[in-house]
Each structure stands twice: as structure tokens, then as C-alpha cells.
């Protein structure tokens, strides 16, 4: 790991100011992506801004028809929250599938979304539920947020403070786990909220999470695995690596989408 300066702000405003002043700074949330990246010297931020001592960034709240989750809320808290389990059980399931128990004790929703690892689970839920990312500056719709692998719409001095998930009538997440890393080889999140039907895929896209609009169209008639029976996804634009070819991932998307629809 290369050296860095370390900052421990106590308010979001202080953190924003530190970010604005240090162009090489990174926010340290749970650290379970950032610290490994730094240990491997794949990244060498000149400054770390530790978000862990900022009050009020963590918590889960049901606000009308939305579930609002603070950016520093750990995966384990989302996975075991009674509020999440009742309001949006698919989201609790997804959080419980991330990493392992010790990783879930540290990793945060805001960190995972800001990092936008192409194999991370949360981007599938954010896109698959049409969530709104609330930042220190504005509100960003999920469809506008993810901008390709490890890229987001966040500006250099912008910090995620909350994520607001609209409650879906039906939703489910299915994941085909890479057994060594626990990351999604492919993960598919499906949801139905009124006329809004979403099918979001993580792990497979060469540019990160994406929606399968052809499946969404077909599901408008009936939200059931039968509606997409026999449908496939083209392998173009999908990841291929030693763990699975692009064609294999394309196949998994259709299989997992049907399983998720059956479970929703």
C-alpha cells in the first residue's frame, strides 16, 4: 500500500470540503473494496477521508412508499433489518448474499454503489427497483447514475448520503455466485411496481449493471417466468473471463431471470 494522508471528518460538509481540496482523495466507508485495491496497489489515493465518524449517515427508515437507507448502513444491517424484511424482502436477501458475515459487518450500501464494481450486487437492486441516490448536492435517478465499470454520475466533490428504494409489489434477486470471491458471476434483480417493470443484471455487463428491456417488454403482459420462456440475451457487450464466457453469462441471465420471476 502506498502512503496517504488520513482525514476523519465529523460532518458531511467537512467531508465535502476535504474532497474538494484533495483531487486525489477517496472516501473510506466500509473499506472492503478500497483497502484491498490499495493493498494490491491497483489504486493509490493520496488521501483517505474516513466517513465512519460522521453521525447520521447510517439507518433504515420507511418513509411513505419508500425505504430510505443511509449511505453508511452496513450490508449486515440491511440483511437482518425487520423493516427491510417486511417492506422489501428481496433487498434484505440481496444484502445477505454479499461476501461473508465479517464482510457484511463492514461493507456499506453507499460505498458499494459509489464503487460500482461490475460484479457487485447492490447496483442490480438500485437499477432493478428504480431507486434514487441522494447525495450532498442532489437526487440522482438510478437510470442516470451508473456510467460504466467503476464509473458513476457522482461529481468529484459529491457524497452519497442516502438511497431511497420505492417499494415494489413484487421483487426478487437471484445470484450465481463465483464460489471463490462470492461476487456475482451473474445476478438478476426483477421487480414490478404498478406498470413499472424492471429486470436488472449485474456481473455480466462489460460496462457494469444494465437493464434487459426486451424482457421488461415481454413481462408487461404477465409478470411470470412463462412470459420470457425461450427468450435469450445476446452475448455481445457481456464479460467473458476464465470463470465464464460471454455466451455462458448470457445463458445465465435468462435462467436467473426466470428463477427470480418465479421467486418474486
Amino acid at each position: 500500500m502506498y502512503a496517504f494522508t488520513y482525514h476523519r471528518p465529523t460532518t458531511v460538509r467537512q467531508a465535502v470540503n476535504l474532497l474538494a481540496k484533495n483531487s486525489e482523495a477517496k472516501l473510506l466507508a466500509g473499506g472492503h473494496s478500497l483497502i484491498p485495491v490499495m493493498k494490491l496497489r491497483l489504486g493509490s489515493p493520496g488521501a483517505l477521508i474516513d466517513m465512519n465518524k460522521i453521525e447520521g449517515l447510517s439507518g433504515i427508515e420507511l418513509k411513505g412508499r419508500s425505504l430510505v437507507i443511509g449511505a453508511m448502513t452496513r450490508h449486515g444491517e440491511v440483511a437482518t433489518s425487520q423493516v427491510v424484511k417486511e417492506a422489501l424482502p428481496a433487498l434484505a436477501d440481496l444484502a445477505g448474499m454479499i461476501g461473508d458475515p465479517a464482510v457484511r459487518h463492514r461493507g456499506t450500501i453507499g460505498g458499494a454503489i459509489a464503487h460500482n464494481d461490475p460484479s457487485a450486487d447492490y447496483p442490480a437492486a438500485v437499477l432493478g427497483l428504480g431507486a434514487t441516490i441522494i447525495t450532498s448536492k442532489r437526487r440522482i435517478e438510478a437510470d442516470e447514475f451508473f456510467k460504466g465499470m467503476f464509473e458513476t454520475a457522482l461529481e468529484p466533490d459529491e457524497i452519497i448520503t442516502k438511497v431511497s428504494f420505492p417499494l415494489a409489489k413484487k421483487a426478487a434477486y437471484q445470484k450465481f455466485k463465483q464460489p471463490a470471491s462470492g461476487f456475482a458471476l451473474v445476478g438478476v434483480f426483477v421487480s414490478k411496481r404498478g406498470a413499472d417493470i424492471r429486470v436488472a443484471v449485474t456481473g455480466a455487463g462489460a460496462s457494469g449493471a444494465f437493464r434487459v428491456t426486451a424482457f421488461e417488454e415481454a413481462l408487461k403482459k404477465r409478470f411470470s417466468p412463462k412470459s420470457i420462456e425461450g427468450m435469450t440475451v445476446p452475448a455481445t457487450g457481456l464479460n467473458g473471463d476464465i470463470h465464464g464466457s460471454a455466451e455462458y453469462r448470457a445463458h445465465l441471465i435468462a435462467v436467473l431471470a426466470r428463477r427470480a420471476l418465479a421467486a418474486a
Binding site: 488520513y6 473510506l28 473499506g31 472492503h32 493493498k39 474516513d50 461473508d100 465479517a102
Partner: peptide
């Protein structure tokens, strides 16, 4: 690399991987 768990300790009562946590944290 945060996978094997040989480094698990309790931080404020909760199990964490101490190889993926900075001492200053």
C-alpha cells in the same frame, strides 16, 4: 485478501477481518 478469515477479531463486539481494516479505523 479478505477471504480466509484467519484474521477475524471483534471490533466493538462485532467480527471483522483485521487484514481489511486500518489500525487508525
Amino acid at each position: 485478501t479478505s477471504q480466509c478469515g484467519a484474521c477475524v477479531v471483534h471490533l466493538d463486539g462485532i467480527a471483522v477481518k483485521s487484514c481489511t481494516t486500518l489500525a487508525v479505523q
